[in-house]
Computed example of a mutant assay.
Amino acid sequence: MKRDETIADLAPLAARPDGAGSSRRALPPPDAIAALAREIESGLAACAPLSLGEHPIEAYLASFAELPAGSQYHAIPPAARATCRAIEAAGGAEAVEAYHRLVLLHLIMGVIARGPSAPMHLTPEALALLDVYLARVVADVAKPRKGFFRHGNDQFAKDFAVCRGRLLPCGVEVLDPLGGIPRRLVFKGRQGADHLRQAVTMARMAWRLGGTKAVWGLHFDRRQIQNFTAKGYADLYLRVADLLEANPEIHGISSGSWWHDPRVLEISPELSFIGTIPENGGAFLIRVGEDDRTTSDALRFAPQRTALHRLGKYRPCFYMLAWARRDVIAWAEAYRAGSVQRRIPVA
């Protein structure tokens, strides 16, 4: 199969980024993926002949399976870093990217053959979204962007994590089954009386959730910017509610970001749609603190927040939002019925 034919076969597969109405047929035929893999493998053999022989894909993936419990989705084990260094030494950065493209295809072929490996029961809509996401990954592999398929690029990290079942696409954000809520939050963010109030809120939150473990996390995917709207977040939370119904052992969901800071709602009310649903649906909000990354993210592409920060009138702060399963499900039922409750305890 010629390269142009491979791309022609695969390019249409990402035509429905929202996953609406998709099915297993959204995924490419295994023969097309196998042909693309052979093409990439041939190129890798030309620039780094021993890469696959000395660094089998199965062994590379096994190193990620051995990461400590609770590791972030973008964590890279030492063995995987060593593999990348060895391949780059043999064939340059292009060889590392070719290797990672093969890794993604290997994982997707596994999904087609054995089904998703996500540690949860998936709803039909979640399966449809996953299929469309994987189809888009295959299309991206067929038309690679230089510098994309490398560790350190968060978009590649998300794709890699979704392909190996570490994350689940849910629309504007991806769901992290190992998210959780760190107990150390009770000791962060406040002092004195404020610290005591935060400890009380943490205790109330833990009681409402039924514990701080078995809580899913959410992470924004910048490629879903077209769904970065009130409707996009309503759709997200409806899908999450359905997943919680299908997984009764999960206590709730969490989300951490500078945009959950109540101060942001005063400065940038146009972003209020992000937290409106959980905040009006019984979510808890915990102040975590300030750091350089939070400041950078909050000020990027934001002239008004940047100006206020320079004047000392705004200090970006990271907040953790936690929403109990019963409240998420109750919100979804009320939303579908046309009414919602309004309440938010803030520390």
Score class of each variant (00 low, 15 high):
231 K>A: 11
329 I>Q: 15
9 D>G: 08
244 L>P: 07
189 G>K: 06
164 R>K: 15
177 P>T: 07
225 I>Q: 10
171 G>K: 03
207 W>V: 05
332 A>K: 04
271 L>V: 08
223 R>L: 14
342 R>I: 14
242 D>G: 08
297 D>S: 04
56 P>L: 12
68 P>C: 11
103 V>F: 05
147 G>F: 09
101 R>L: 04
39 E>F: 14
94 E>M: 11
199 A>C: 14
345 P>D: 11
298 A>L: 03
246 A>L: 03
5 E>C: 08
3 R>G: 05
167 L>Y: 10
163 C>L: 06
339 S>D: 13
34 A>G: 11
66 E>W: 12
78 P>E: 13
298 A>T: 00
13 L>T: 04
215 V>D: 02
230 A>V: 03
210 G>R: 03
48 A>P: 08
245 E>Q: 12
85 R>H: 06
172 V>E: 01
31 D>N: 04
287 R>E: 07
84 C>M: 10
292 D>M: 01
254 S>Y: 02
128 A>H: 04
146 K>T: 15
346 V>L: 06
147 G>Y: 11
92 G>C: 06
216 W>D: 09
58 E>L: 11
141 V>E: 09
205 M>T: 07
97 E>S: 14
301 F>C: 07
237 Y>R: 04
257 S>F: 03
100 H>S: 06
259 W>I: 14
50 L>S: 08
197 R>Q: 11
42 S>T: 15
263 R>F: 00
331 W>F: 08
141 V>Y: 12
316 P>M: 00
39 E>N: 14
226 Q>A: 15
32 A>L: 08
338 G>R: 12
88 E>L: 00
35 A>F: 02
163 C>R: 03
235 D>R: 09
85 R>A: 13
164 R>G: 05
104 L>N: 07
131 D>M: 00
126 A>H: 01
29 P>T: 02
97 E>F: 13
44 L>V: 13
1 M>H: 10
